[in-house]
Computed example of a mutant assay.
Amino acid sequence: MTEGTERVSFRSPGMAWDLAGVIHRPKGFDPDGSYPAIVAVHPIGSCKEQTAGNVYAKAQAEAGYVVLAFDASYQGESGGQPRLVEDPAQRVEDIKVAIDHLVTLPYVDADRIGGIGVCGGGGYVISATMTDRRIKAVTSITGVNFGRLSREAFSQYDPIAALEQMAAQRTAEARGEKARVDDYLPESVEAGKQAGVDDIDMLEATDYYKTDRGQAPGGATSAAFSRRSAAVGWDAFFDAEQLLTQPLLVVIGEKPGGFGAYRDGQEIYGRAASKDKQLLVLPDTSHYDLYDHPEPTDKAIEAATAFFGSHL
């Protein structure tokens, strides 16, 4: 009998690099047993050791699931070049590759696999669920449609101008110029305030990612600027009215912020074709409260545990 966590690496046939992951096992784990499994997807600029892994994956393992949290391609300990690329299509494919790994494990019941994602990971796992029927139920925790965010706030509400700049930068890099890497966040909350930042999401993200509260070596909070064009033309919720039929749980806080989880959560709940869908709006709760603050995350975990218990 063994329990705890295991570091793993895996890839699909034809893939040129490995993905790095951590498998969280339930207490009393029996390698000869058969367990439902969950794939946990980290936010934009995050990694497997942060909220998706050390909060939500850990909690679902404690509830009896085998949970695989992993680093996205080009990020954290996973492979892929160039580094620090945030490509939504690849992020969705990574989820499918993670499931490919889960279904090879003798103790995983391939007919009982779920997905959970936080922030951008919530949007990615919803998108993956629409085209991978191996995912039987999906939970989005303060999920964000990164395509919508990239067209709006992340491009200063001028996506064409942003795309022109990205194109020029990519041409420069193809001709030998050093890659431009931008940090999504200011160096500190105080630096952000001094620069005129007043958005709750931006400031609370900085408090999480730039301090001991949530900081981890793999959580770079930065991206290669010339490759961000991939997100501008992408939509996490495309064709949800037809394709998102699996059971869906959406958890959001009622405090809206610039990253848009509140509006995205309301939107996907309304659009999803799922006959069994739930929307949990937590009062007096912000986007980053749902990363690690005990009271709201406990409520989100309780809802997710009950939800997966009904569908896996």
Rank of each mutant, 00 (worst) to 15 (best):
E3L: 08
G4I: 10
R7C: 14
F10Y: 13
F10K: 07
P13E: 12
G14P: 03
G14T: 09
A16R: 10
W17K: 10
L19M: 05
R25T: 12
P26V: 12
G28E: 07
F29L: 09
D32W: 04
G33M: 08
G33H: 10
S34L: 15
P36C: 09
I38S: 04
I38R: 03
V41M: 06
T51Q: 13
T51C: 14
Q60Y: 15
F70C: 12
S73D: 01
Q75V: 11
E77C: 11
P82L: 08
L84G: 05
V85E: 03
V85S: 01
P88A: 04
A89T: 11
A89K: 07
A89E: 12
A89H: 07
V92L: 11
I95Q: 03
K96W: 02
K96S: 08
V97P: 00
V97Y: 00
D100F: 07
P106Q: 03
Y107W: 11
V108R: 04
D111M: 09
I113M: 06
I113S: 02
G114P: 01
G117K: 05
V118D: 05
C119M: 05
G121F: 01
G123Y: 06
G123N: 10
Y124C: 14
A128H: 07
T129G: 04
T131C: 12
A137N: 02
A137T: 04
V138T: 13
I141L: 05
T142Q: 07
G143H: 09
G143Y: 05
F146M: 15
R148P: 10
L149H: 01
E152W: 05
F154D: 08
Y157A: 11
Y157C: 11
Y157T: 15
D158W: 06
I160G: 05
A162L: 07
E164R: 14
E164N: 15
M166D: 02
A168W: 04
T171D: 14
T171N: 14
A174G: 10
E177C: 06
A179R: 13
D183E: 15
L185W: 00
P186Y: 03
E187L: 14
S188T: 11
K193Q: 13
G196Q: 05
D199C: 02
I200W: 00
I200E: 01
M202F: 07
E204N: 09
T206E: 02
D207V: 10
D207Y: 04
R213T: 15
G214D: 08
A216S: 12
P217Q: 02
P217A: 07
G218V: 04
T221Q: 11
T221F: 06
R228L: 10
A230Y: 01
A236E: 00
F237T: 12
D239F: 04
A240L: 05
E241A: 14
L243P: 03
L243T: 08
T245C: 03
V250D: 02
I252W: 00
E254F: 01
G257I: 09
G258C: 00
F259P: 00
A261L: 10
Y262V: 15
R263W: 09
R263M: 10
D264H: 14
G265A: 09
Q266N: 14
I268N: 02
Y269N: 10
A272D: 05
A273Y: 06
S274P: 01
L279M: 09
L280K: 08
V281P: 03
V281F: 03
V281I: 15
T285M: 07
T285N: 03
D289C: 08
D289T: 09
D292C: 15
E295F: 11
P296L: 11
T297V: 14
A304G: 13
